Amino acid sequence: MNVQTIFRATLARAPARVFSYSTQAAPAAAPLLLRIKADVKDAMRAKDKERLAVVKSILSDLTYLEKSPQAPAEVTDSVIQVLVQKSIKKRQESVLSFQNAGRADQAAQETKEIEMLKVYLPQAMTEQEMEDAIRKVIQEQGATSVKDLGKVMKELGSLDPARAPKKTVSDMVKRILSSL
């Protein structure tokens, strides 16, 4: 028996579904994810090791999130932007630590990385925009005291966490409700 005969015999016995192709399209990747992957390639081509390390750290954080039990159903731009915000916050804490330790060179490096990461964030809501949205929800809900914080925050869940961080929104809601 030659190889072709063996191959044909194997094909004849194989279940049909092994060789069928799916017609379903792969899920579309988030535009920001595609941009980040393109930036990795650009940084490699430019041999920009600092930028490459920063961009790869975003992809690493994303991979870690996807494998965690709290993984979102799908990766959206908003999910990636929240990851970038967390990464920026870590680096800001590192800057303070390095400055307290007298390591200006390391603090400058972390500051430079923060600037590289900010490129991936949308423009944040202004204080006035957040306050207007919060006051509108408070009025709609009829909230009168800090006890109504949960109701108000639930309605404000529709705000993009990349443009209006939940901690900032929560603090502002508490401040507004306590002044009523």
Rank of each mutant, 00 (worst) to 15 (best):
Y21I: 14
G157W: 00
L121W: 08
K112M: 10
S57E: 14
K67D: 10
I176G: 08
T10C: 11
I88W: 03
V146I: 15
Q139D: 14
T76W: 00
N100S: 08
K41M: 11
E155G: 06
T10H: 06
K56N: 12
T168A: 14
D105M: 07
E74Q: 12
E66M: 14
S57K: 12
E155P: 01
K167C: 00
E113V: 05
G150R: 14
E127C: 01
V40F: 04
A101H: 07
L65V: 08
A12S: 08
Q81I: 03
S60M: 07
F7V: 11
Y21Q: 10
Q92N: 13
Q24D: 05
K90P: 00
L33D: 01
A29R: 12
Y21F: 09
R35A: 08
A9G: 14
L149A: 02
Q106Y: 11
M130I: 12
V55Y: 12
V75Q: 01
Q141L: 10
Q139Y: 11
A16S: 10
A104N: 09
E93P: 01
K166Q: 14
S178P: 04
P165T: 09
A101D: 12
I138Y: 10
T168S: 14
K174Y: 03
D171N: 15
E155K: 15
A108Q: 12
T63G: 13
K147P: 00
I6L: 14
S145K: 08
K151N: 11
Q106M: 14
L34V: 12
S158E: 06
V40M: 03
N2G: 07
K167W: 00
A38T: 09
K136N: 13
D171Y: 11
Q109M: 11
A101W: 02
E113A: 15
G150N: 15
S179E: 15
S20D: 06
S22T: 12
R17M: 06
S178T: 15
M125P: 04
K89T: 11
V137Q: 10
M153Y: 04
P15S: 05
P161R: 13
V55E: 01
D77K: 00
F19D: 06
Q4P: 01
A124F: 05
I80G: 01
S57I: 01
K49C: 02
E66V: 05
G150M: 03
S158I: 14
P72M: 02
Q85P: 00
N100H: 04
V79M: 02
A28S: 08
Q24H: 07
A104I: 11
A28C: 00
L65A: 02
V18K: 06
Y120F: 15
A14C: 08
Q128H: 10
D171L: 13
G102R: 05
S20R: 09
K37M: 10
Q99I: 04
M116G: 03
A73V: 13
P161S: 11
P27W: 02
I176P: 08
V75N: 00
